[in-house]
Every structure is written in structure tokens, then in C-alpha cells.
Write a protein that binds this DNA or RNA. Structure first.
Lengths: 190, 190
DNA sequence: CTCCACAAGCACAGATCTGTGCTTGTGGTG
DNA sequence: CACCACAAGCACAGATCTGTGCTTGTGGAG
């Protein structure tokens, strides 16, 4: 009796489990009819035992944070276009494309959901945010090295990043045409 | 035996319960060391039986949505300053003051947290957002009536509202001086 | 090839959340 | 003043989440 379950166990490698869980979490975030987001639901959808999730990540927040970090780093390979305007435009176009997809919006939502209120998370929130800003900082540094004079980070935050976030959070579609150019031009001509 | 508990029951009116629960929810959202946000925790902090909360609101999302709506309407009495710039500036100054307080940031966070992913909530999300936008629409309408030419709502969203939200969500303090003026001037001189 | 460290899966249990039926106090109405 | 509708509180229970101890398959080192 008990030996049979042993043979029936189908097992995947840690990396497969990790990918399956991340994928399941994104899908649950996207799926409008999906059940609510918690560890048992994610594990079930991933076809993974829930204990594996509890042991590896501990909490839903940690799981989401890990998932977000992994996906963002995988999906945002910033390229050097040779000019500040080009770099910003590439970034903005990638962002617009991203928040047009359910998965992209879900990712932004997850960034916020994965930031609980407790004390330790407060620091992680800042860290998470700065990690997000790093690609923009890189763009600024390259511009400075070229002799260009990029706007301060704070201004880029207000005029370029903030619009994307608010639209992702509230599900507001960006204007159909020329939106990235509009934002970048506004930023650079201020 | 059973009669004693009856006499020991201290009871508050529905309105008192409502206020106490709202207050408890805000405090839990603010308190960095607070336990996590759920109905039993809120009820306990409010000194209310949890069944009262379940019966009145049903879900945490509904409770937060109700709380946010009530607080926002209570705290944002927009006044007519006589000019578009004045109105926008008053709105921006109130918003900056708000997100400088833990409670203000908590309220913005609650707006987002109270928007779950299921299908019905998708519509409510839009509604919730438009309710938020109504005060801005009012400002635009008054300006139009005065013969002024206010920027489109979308531009106000991107340049004025979005910066506040992103700062509230990530806990980024706005610049110390002249921030409301900066944003409004940028918006109007674009 | 053999052995070993690691992690995934299983079984089980305590804690917590969610919900129901009933009792009873409160405020309003005649 | 008496009565009634409503909602708050209590007791209790099912469902679900969270976590632990153990077994066992997998992949890598020697």
C-alpha cells in the first residue's frame, strides 16, 4: 500500500519547481476569474506540494518579491542606443508594451502587493524600489559620460515612471499613439 | 450563568461600530509593527466582535473600499479658489500634506489593496478610480465655466496625480519645498 | 558505479479564518 | 410607556491556512 505512493511520486528538480511556482503565481494574478492569491492556491496550480513552497519561501510576500525580481531582470534588458533620448524612449516603449499585457500589469501589482507593512518590509520596500530605479540610473550615467545633461532622477520618476505605474495599477490603457514619445519629450523639454 | 454574560455585554451603536472598525483598519495599515491586516485583527483592535464585521462587510476588500471612500470624502473638501491654478495648487498641497503622514500613505495603499483581481472587482476598480477623479473633473469644469482652458484629464493624471501615488506607494518623501507649485507649473506650462 | 547532500512529496495536526444560529441590547415609533 | 425592527454580541463549527517530521527520489562528487 504505502510503497505504491512512493513509486507514483512524480518529482521535478528544484529549478523546475521554482519556475512552475513563479508561473502559477503570475497566472493567478492575471486570471480575473482565478481564486484568490495564497500559497495553497499557487502550489495547486503549479502542481507542487504546498510544503515545498512554504519551506522555500515561507510567506506569500517573499514569493512574490522573488518572482517579481526574477521576471523584471529577465524581461528588461536595457540596451544602449547611443543617446539619452533614445535610451529613455526604449525604456518607455518597453514599459508601455508591458503594461498593455495582463501579465505586465500583474507584475506591477505584485510589486506593490509584495510590500507588507511590517518594519522589516519597510526597508525591503525601499530596496526593491531602488533596484527598479537602477536601470534608469544606468541610463543617466551613460548620458553623463557622453557629455549630455540628464534630468535629475526625481524628475524622471515624476514624469516618466509614475505615469506607467498608475496606469498599471488602475488598469488605465495608455493613449494609443505616440505615448512614449510624448512623455519623453515632455521630460526633456521641461 | 448564562444571564450574567448578558448583563456584561457592552454594546455600541452601529455608527460607533462603523467608525471604530474604520479607525482600527487605518491604524493597522499604519502601524509598522502591527500584525497583518485581516478581519479578526481589525475587529479585535476595534473592540468589536468579528461577526459584526463579517456580517456588515463580508470581505476585507469591501471593508477597505468602504473605509477609503468614507475617509477620502471626509478629508478632501475641495474649495473654489477662483482660478484653475489656485484650485490645482490647493489640491496638490492637500495631497502633499496627506502623503507626508503615515495615515495618508496608508489610505493610498488601501485604495490599491482593496482592488482584488476577480472579475467583479475589475469594474469596481474603475469606479473607485473615477470617484477619485471626480474632484479633478470638478476643477476642470469650473475652469471651463470661467473661460479658462484646462489641460485634458489624462495630462493631469500623468503629471499631477501619478507622482503623488507613486510616492505614497513606495514611501518616497516629496521634495521639501515648492513641490506642489513645481508640479502645477509644469502641468500648466506644457 | 556508489554514495551522499539536498530538496520534493506525503501524512498529519495545530492555528486561524470564515461563517451560522441564536440571544439580547438599543433606538425609534405609536 | 410599550412595542418592534435592527444589529451587536456569544457560542460553536466547518473550512482553510500554516507548519512539522519523516520518507524518498534526484543530481552531483568521488
Amino acid at each position: 500500500m504505502t510503497q505504491q505512493q512512493a513509486s507514483a511520486r512524480l518529482r521535478r528538480s528544484p529549478e523546475q519547481v521554482r519556475a512552475a511556482v513563479h508561473q502559477a503565481a503570475v497566472e493567478l494574478l492575471c486570471d480575473p476569474d482565478g481564486e484568490e492569491l495564497n500559497i495553497p492556491a499557487i502550489a495547486a496550480r503549479a502542481g507542487v506540494n504546498h510544503t515545498s513552497v512554504y519551506r522555500r519561501w515561507g510567506t506569500l510576500d517573499a514569493l512574490l518579491a522573488d518572482m517579481v525580481t526574477t521576471r523584471l531582470e529577465r524581461d528588461s534588458p536595457l540596451k544602449d542606443t547611443g543617446s539619452l533620448r533614445g535610451d529613455l524612449l526604449a525604456w518607455a516603449e518597453a514599459s508601455v508594451a508591458s503594461i498593455r499585457t495582463p501579465e505586465g500589469r500583474a507584475l506591477v501589482r505584485a510589486v506593490i502587493l509584495s510590500m507588507p507593512n511590517n518594519t522589516r518590509a519597510q526597508a525591503e520596500r525601499r530596496q526593491q524600489f531602488e533596484r527598479r530605479m537602477r536601470s534608469i540610473e544606468k541610463i543617466r550615467e551613460r548620458a553623463t559620460a557622453r557629455g549630455e545633461d540628464p534630468p535629475p532622477l526625481e524628475q524622471i520618476l515624476d514624469q516618466l515612471i509614475a505615469p506607467f505605474y498608475i496606469r498599471a495599477v488602475f488598469g488605465i490603457d495608455p493613449p494609443a499613439d505616440g505615448y512614449p514619445e510624448l512623455l519623453v519629450d515632455r521630460l526633456l523639454h521641461a
